[in-house]
């Protein structure tokens, strides 16, 4: 079997040329009509309570990933060597037993101030919009081409402001 990269690239291009067929209008009307049943849709005040723990959880996940990446990278440095990784870039290598090892790089492309809101404890928080580029490489069995995945990821990060 020919495992040249362009073999699968051409298939991917073909697959991406086609989009899923839209549902028939009758079904779309049916879906639109069930919206009034959604009485449980929370009002914006309640949504804050739901959204902020989610954002905080994501923030914690990012912080953990960054910390893990930095620790891994730091441990891989020869003793006494000066770090040379560009700012805003985190590279991790995940290699856990039977799974295909994965090399992951996250690049912080930009941060934008979205304004100030309040969290569930009514504290003022500044919402920061961060744009990352995640570049993951999945290393398959020896002799096989690695599978690469790059995509833009956007995060909204709440930063708690101190009251004085």
């Amino acid at each position: 079997m020919n495992n040249e990269p362009h073999d699968t690239d051409s298939v991917e291009v073909l697959l991406q040329r086609f989009r899923p067929a839209p549902p028939k209008e009758v079904f779309m009307q049916r879906l639109r009509s069930v919206c009034p049943v959604l009485t449980a849709v929370p009002d914006p005040k309640r949504m804050k309570v739901i959204v902020f723990p989610f954002l905080l959880a994501r923030l914690a996940a990012i912080a953990a990933a960054v910390a893990a990446g930095l620790i891994t990278w730091h441990l891989m440095q020869p003793p006494g060597e000066v770090p040379a990784v560009p700012a805003g870039t985190v590279t991790t290598r995940v290699d856990n037993g039977q799974q295909a090892p994965r090399k992951s790089t996250q690049r912080l492309m930009g941060v934008r101030d979205m304004g100030i809101a309040r969290d569930e404890q009514r504290r003022p928080v500044r919402l920061m919009h961060a744009t990352w580029i995640d570049d993951d490489v999945y290393l398959n069995a020896p002799g096989e081409e690695p599978v690469r995945e790059a995509r833009v990821r956007e995060e909204i990060v709440p930063v708690v402001l101190n009251d004085f």
């Binding site: 073999d7 699968t8 298939v11 799974q99 090892p101 994965r102 999945y138 599978v147 995945e149």
Partner: peptide
């Protein structure tokens, strides 16, 4: 596992390449 997802993705592409060879 993520590695399994990536491997299956590649395997699927290889199989689709065979099936779709007339239009490729």
């Amino acid at each position: 596992p993520q590695g399994t997802a990536a491997t299956r993705y590649r395997t699927a592409l290889m199989q689709l390449r065979k099936s779709l060879s007339p239009v490729l």
